[in-house]
Design a binder for these strands. Structure first.
Lengths: 229, 229
DNA sequence: CGCTAATGTGACAGCTTCGTGACAATCGTG
DNA sequence: CACGATTGTCACGAAGCTGTCACATTAGCG
């Protein structure tokens, strides 16, 4: 088994250092970032297996970054452990709601940190890598987060990307607007059902004349992705 | 799709009224109760699909009722949305711990209320799994929501689809027009019986020459789906 | 072979669902 | 903070579906 990579996000260098040492002794690869901005970039570029995220940071807070990562399909599966200086319940709950998989209250022992980190990694879905899907000349690459038709790049918005990814991995099946909202938008969003129509429209337009027939309307029900007919 | 029933529990008549109007405009059936006692009785008797529960009420508080409903297996699955006048985090947390599926802070817009109610109901509704049926080269696939004859897709309207699905899962048995209206259209619709004939006609046409013999007329009674004769 | 009741069929007005462009609010970014 | 991108919502028209009718056709019966 190859060593797991952990991204530490904290603005205090001393803490990063302390954690890094502990993790390296436990045979993890370590990346560091001191703000949410670069952290996000590193998640995209280096694809760590887990993120250790400080709750309190100047600028975008840790929790914001967590939300952002969980919202994006490409990074939604990435396990996150929140570090929090306060032991207040509020933080715990907000953190877990934001999608964190665990949280650790400072001060903590390196031992404890490593133990919980292992536990989270163990729980983490082994899916990890998402495959590139190519159907009928239409190609979606989760790694580069790009869509192309016959080699030519298509301009697809974030929501349309998620929608397309969902469809391409769930072909030949009709979904109601409700189900799409659940699957693509996420369970607890309060959005009108007709909004789905609009994004279907945007996706169809982005796919161009060659491929929009793949997104089919199932009258009275919803939509379906299919190569047939 | 049958209308969902929502039980509003609040001691202030004016608030109930406001909510009731909003919900009725969105095509929900509305029940009202002004205390936890009667609310509990109505849950048992009328089996609403969702409960909108005020947090602050004289006597047994809303949260008590929520706990009680969640504790009882018969009502544990019933989604509950808490209404709370205070925006304090504490309430939110207690409410969610008591088993509420969502909470809304007053004041709220009717729009928001309906939107969140929809979202909660969406999550609560289990997706029924239905099997593909294939008879004599005619195939109906509930998953892709498609009908095909010997592999070729058929263009079937929504009502004809439901009609065919019913027939294919209830072969070799004659149904009166009245029974078909009950089973396919749904219990409480007022529709002329002859309307069934028209949809039978449309279904037969959609099935094409190869398969329309499957839909048989039972003179003086109604229709039957059968491969025989 | 006529007669009658039951069923088949085409047409159509009204209704529902879907496609689409516009727009304001929000988000992400420099 | 300002700009462009993205998002959710709406209004309106187009397209499709539904229920009903009027009339044609058929089955059953004496």
């Amino acid at each position: 088994m190859t060593a797991k990579t952990v991204l530490i996000v904290d603005d205090e260098a001393s803490i990063r250092e302390m954690i890094a040492v502990a993790l390296e002794m436990a045979d993890y690869r370590v990346l560091e970032a001191d703000n949410a901005q670069t952290a996000h970039a590193m998640v995209v570029d280096d694809q760590p297996d887990l993120v250790l995220l400080d709750w309190m940071m100047p600028g975008t807070s840790g929790i914001e970054l967590a939300r952002r990562l969980k919202r994006d399909t490409a990074t939604a599966e990435l396990p996150i452990i929140l570090l929090t200086a306060k032991s207040e319940e509020d933080n715990k709950i907000q953190g877990l709601e934001a999608g964190a998989d665990d949280y650790i209250t400072k001060p903590f022992s390196p031992r404890e940190l490593v133990a919980r980190l292992k536990a989270v990694l163990r729980r983490a879905t082994p899916t990890g890598v998402e495959d590139t899907v190519e159907i009928d000349g239409l190609r979606l690459d989760p790694v580069s987060h790009r869509v192309s038709a016959n080699g030519e790049a298509l301009d697809v918005g974030p929501t349309e990307y998620r929608l397309l990814q969902f469809f391409m991995t769930h072909q030949e099946r009709a979904y109601t607007r409700s189900q799409l909202l659940d699957q693509v938008w996420g369970g607890n969003v309060y959005v009108e059902e007709r909004t789905v129509d609009v994004h279907i429209r945007r996706l169809r337009r982005a796919l161009g004349d060659d491929h929009q027939h793949l997104i089919q309307t199932v009258r009275g029900t919803g939509y379906r992705f299919s190569t047939k007919e």
